[in-house]
Nucleic acid binder design. Structure first.
Length: 284
DNA sequence: ATTGGGACCTGCTCGC
DNA sequence: TGCGAGCAGGTCCCAA
């Protein structure tokens, strides 16, 4: 579910609500098949030991990862996978249906990791021994960073034969884009999703670089995309609003906002790409 | 090395 | 109304 704008929206929601608070307790909800959420940790007990009594000093984002800086110097790393949510609720409120972890915070609230599909993950990064799974710090550049230049994108694409759609989804080339925003950026740059990345000339790389930044900024300004299944909500359970501004994603068969041709979809790399066949020229 | 396909899970929607 | 197939925004792993 959550791509860079959704994770950033969650971060901004949680920041004033959790920073400066102590973690009073950690509850790991039992799962008959094992809690995949903690697969990066040796055990739930180890996870709790590293967190209970720690104060949250900051909440940062790296690509689609949320990083909770702890007063121990360690970092609670959370990735929401496809269906994960971080929900802040009063301690007396109902436990979310798919709760995997509950972090009880000073002040009477509980931060729940709620995730029906269990693709999410949390672990404490305590350089280097505590981390055994994903390394969030070996991702490609942040697309909204001032240092991510169009030359940087051009270098990443040079010589690549894979479809540009697949390359934009590759987190080591540029980090934080998922299926929604790759489709939306390619539409805005008028590039067909199957064009081999290395075939893009300077003008099109420049257009793509600008489109990626614009679409991400606009999506953050609208609190992310809560698409058809409405799974994405921020820490207070609020929906995003960018779904009203999507131009191609989840608009198959609807008219292109630029030229009115019906939006088409295709499959590439196991993902559905949405595009306008008239505005985004077929590669040859 | 790069590319492409499948696997991992559960819940929801759609068509019959 | 009920059922199975297909689909879903992410990442990892493997084989070619």
């Amino acid at each position: 579910m959550p791509e860079l704008p959704e994770v950033e929206t969650i971060r901004r929601c949680l920041l004033p609500r959790v920073v400066g608070r102590d973690i009073l307790g950690v509850r790991v909800f039992p799962d008959p098949k094992g809690c995949r959420w903690l697969r990066g940790m040796r055990s739930p007990a180890e996870f709790k030991r590293l967190l209970v009594g720690r104060r949250i000093e900051d909440v940062r984002r790296r690509a689609k990862y949320l990083l909770f800086d702890l007063d121990s110097g360690e970092i609670l790393v959370v990735h929401l996978g496809m269906s994960g949510q971080l929900l802040l609720r009063p301690a007396a409120a109902e436990v979310p249906r798919h709760a995997r972890i509950g972090f009880s915070l000073e002040g009477g609230s509980v931060l729940y990791a709620n995730d029906p599909r269990k693709f999410g993950e949390a672990y404490v990064y305590s350089e280097p021994a505590g981390r055994t799974a994903v390394d969030p710090f070996r991702l490609g550049p942040e697309p909204l960073s001032p240092t991510w230049s169009r030359e940087n994108l051009a270098r990443a694409l040079a010589g690549r034969t894979a479809p540009i759609k697949a390359l934009l989804l590759n987190q080591t080339l540029v980090a934080g884009l998922g299926n929604i925003y790759t489709d939306e950026a390619l539409f805005r740059a008028r590039i067909h999703p199957l064009v081999p990345g290395g075939n893009l000339d300077g003008a099109r790389v420049r257009a793509l670089h600008g489109a990626v930044r614009r679409v991400l900024r606009e999506a953050i300004a609208h609190q992310g995309t809560s698409a058809a299944d409405r799974q994405y909500v921020d820490g207070e359970g609020r929906l995003g609003r960018f779904q009203n501004r999507l131009r191609v994603y989840q608009r198959r068969g609807l008219p292109c906002p630029a030229c009115s041709a019906p939006i088409l979809t295709l499959k590439t790399g196991g993902r559905t790409a949405h595009f306008c066949p008239r505005c985004q020229r077929e590669p040859r």
